[in-house]
Design a protein around this nucleic acid. Sequence first.
DNA 1: ATAATGACGTCGG
DNA 2: TCCGACGCCATTA
Length: 118
Amino acid sequence: MSDENPGPAGLPEYAERVLEVAERIPPGRVMTYGDIAEWLEEGGPRQVGRAMSLYGRAVPWWRVVRSDGVLLPGAEQRALAHYRAEGTPLRDSAAGPRLDMRRARWDGSDGGGGRLHD
DNA sequence: ATAATGACGTCGG
DNA sequence: TCCGACGCCATTA
């Protein structure tokens, strides 16, 4: 049987962990698919992306982004509105606004002294 | 079992 | 900066 091991919330355990991290990302900051995978020490960027596409609608999905800072295809306007509202660092490129990963990327550590950037 | 697909990532040109 | 080729890995066809 194609078992998915649904957790208490009714979704696969792995997806549940991904969503848990996504909810942890502070406003104005973002995390990449790859970073979340490493942080979980399980799966890879594509698995995180899959989990988000299937179950991520209930969490701040706009804070989970690609490493190159490209806005989520198909939801660019929605994402942009959130970024502006949260003050997420953006960058202007010829093709349009992109995330300024250098400043927006969050490593998973809380602000309490554990910041590695900036 | 093999091939194609996807909310990815890195590298070379 | 932009674009294509490859690598990666679970799911689908």
